[in-house]
Write a protein that binds this DNA or RNA. Sequence first.
DNA 1: ATGAGATAGTTTAAGGTTGAAATATCCGCT
DNA 2: AGCGGATATTTCAACCTTAAACTATCTCAT
Lengths: 169, 169
Amino acid sequence: MTELGPLALDAETMVQAVGVSERPHKPELRLWLRMLTCTNLVEALVRTRLRAEFGATLPRFDLMAQLERSPEGMTLGQLSRRMMVSNGNVTGLVERLVEMGLVERLVDPADRRTATVRLTAEGRGAFAAMARAHEGWLAEAFAGLGIEDRAALMGALGRLKASVQEVQA
Amino acid sequence: MTELGPLALDAETMVQAVGVSERPHKPELRLWLRMLTCTNLVEALVRTRLRAEFGATLPRFDLMAQLERSPEGMTLGQLSRRMMVSNGNVTGLVERLVEMGLVERLVDPADRRTATVRLTAEGRGAFAAMARAHEGWLAEAFAGLGIEDRAALMGALGRLKASVQEVQA
DNA sequence: ATGAGATAGTTTAAGGTTGAAATATCCGCT
DNA sequence: AGCGGATATTTCAACCTTAAACTATCTCAT
């Protein structure tokens, strides 16, 4: 590890510090950073409380939320696509949830490649409690946002989503 | 993401597709899911291209972006706070970037607890190239968004950020 | 001076995440 | 029947991430 000289700034650094003509960031960048900050703040809030109050993690909660909407179960592939995460990721998450007794894996006899996953009774109960709390946390987080801001966000984010998806294709 | 095809459905889309649930979701939840979807889509886009075009990762790029704004360097603690990630996380990221020769660590003789990190010349060059591309990707992603949507987002997200931070306190 | 408390970083264990390669199964065609 | 390509999932190595415990250093009130 190099040592910082007695003078904190050497010649090169001075040139930089003086010569930086702060070229203004493109507006898209500023908007993106702000969006990212908001998402990170809310996510951190939810993650912390899930952990503190339920000993749960956000990815597991998300997976259970998907299953709760499909009482008949979902395949790992469906989970992967809807959660927008990789296949291998889902494999591991399901593994841990099965071990905890919150979900169960079923093999489809008609197609032995696919595995169907669904909540157990215990899983449904656990999820219900977490979901109720989760809604409350979000209401808290968004409490300072007026009705017109909410509407504006819903609209603009919908169009942003379409815009980004356009690029992906 | 190995193969998230164009048919990938995200959580928010599923809510709409499944539609009628016994209890309609609170509006905050729908708004939150939509925001999360947008963020994830953009993040996936940036991450994929950083990897494909520069062999870089998003966290390392983010760290270098912080350093680029402080030519005099930043301490690990400052980096941790600005990036909103844990201390230990920064330790590891810096470790790898030092090994790649993109940043350097300096010990402050006046306070031997603190380590200052700054970009090397090579790091500045690498970052400049990535930052230019990054701006272009964002412009692409946001291209379908009108000027009024952008303004509305900036405003509403600013107030949302304040609202969430209020809760944290 | 010095010791208690504050501050800066590191380490560790557990888990999340990806992208790519590998395995297993199925389907359609001949 | 059986082969070749498609589909579903697992495995793997590498990396990211956190929370909590730990080390090292500093500051300040006495």
